[in-house]
């Protein structure tokens, strides 16, 4: 439970830290850290505007999307503390429940009958389809090294301090950062700051969503970041440490994750849209590398 509470608390600061980093790097002072949350509060109290074309799907879609992300929180362990629900291969459910949310998000995008939202929807499903093998292979590698198949046990028995696991941990963190960037439609796949419909992915899907629903989606996206941040933190936890150390490492990891994203977004240009599939497949290829390392570590390739 402590993990979930920390995740939710840190979510309030996460987008703010990214923004602050970006502003400082571009020579501006930048808004206060909590500014994105103030925006969300503002949205919560605004009038909703629905498209004439929209149907029941628009009414339930954002809610289901948000709920799917909240549900996926239950699977996240916190160091040696177990997750709320854990079973063998629980990460499959974790991935699929996120996909369920995405299914409704895409339907919501198509519901308005807009000329832009279908484009975003099409790109979003395609990118998450292409990134999915990367995470599956990565977990395969992790479960091969540790010999366990649930988030809980994998992270409990994954020992960062063990010399031979350095490489895998590094690749794992790298892929999780990239995965978080793609799932949240950040640079270099998509730039949430540019509002040119033709090049957007996620933002173009929510053009016709307003008020409470938009607040839900913004918060869900911030939550997604901290979920992946907590997975990264779990990779870095040293085994058998007490809760204070864990909390400290967790908070430091999340903040540095946000700062790293800020850095990446400041210095990375955006990909051409046609180049994106290639970029995503490269991530899968890197996770195959993790798998090969796992094969070597377990003495299958000698």
């Amino acid at each position: 439970m402590i993990g979930i509470i920390l995740i939710i608390i840190l979510t309030f600061f996460f987008p703010g830290i990214i923004n602050r980093t970006k502003s400082i790097l571009s020579g501006r002072k930048g808004p206060v850290i909590l500014q994105p949350m103030y925006d969300i509060r503002l949205l919560l109290n605004k009038k909703s505007i629905f498209s004439n074309t929209s149907s029941i799907i628009t009414q339930v879609g954002p809610t289901i999307y948000f709920a799917s992300i909240v549900t996926s929180l239950l699977f996240l362990p916190f160091g040696s503390y177990s997750s709320v629900i854990n079973f063998d291969n629980d990460f499959i459910y974790f991935i699929y429940i996120l996909a369920f949310g995405k299914f409704f998000m895409v339907l919501t995008a198509l519901d308005a009958g807009s000329s832009f939202q279908g484009m975003g929807a099409s790109r979003e499903v395609m990118y998450s389809m292409l990134i999915e093998p990367a995470i599956l292979i990565l977990i395969g590698a992790l479960s091969m090294i540790t010999g366990y198949t649930s988030f809980d046990e994998i992270f409990k028995f994954m020992d960062f301090t063990n010399n031979s696991y350095y490489l895998v941990t590094i690749i794992c963190c790298y892929i999780l950062v990239k995965f978080a960037m793609v799932e949240n439609s950040r640079l270099p796949i998509d730039d949430p700051k540019t509002h040119l419909e033709l090049t957007m992915v996620h933002e173009v899907m929510i053009l016709d969503i307003s008020g409470f629903d938009l607040a839900l989606i913004h918060f869900a996206n911030a939550l997604k970041f901290t979920i992946f941040g907590s997975l990264i933190a779990n990779c870095l936890f040293p085994p058998n440490s007490n809760i204070l150390v864990l909390t400290l490492i967790f908070i430091v990891t999340q903040i540095s994750f946000a700062v790293i994203i800020g850095f990446l977004e400041s210095f990375n240009p955006r990909n051409k849209v046609v180049k994106n599939p290639q970029y995503l497949l490269t991530i899968s290829a890197i996770s195959l590398l993790a798998f090969v390392i796992a094969l070597i570590l377990t003495n299958k390739i000698t």
């Binding site: 909703s48 505007i49 629905f50 498209s51 004439n52 074309t53 308005a112 807009s114 832009f116 016709d208």
Partner: peptide, 12 residues
């Protein structure tokens, strides 16, 4: 509480 309104789809 906040009320809602129906409008045409956003066409940029």
């Amino acid at each position: 509480r906040n009320g809602f309104e129906k409008q045409a789809t956003w066409g940029c």
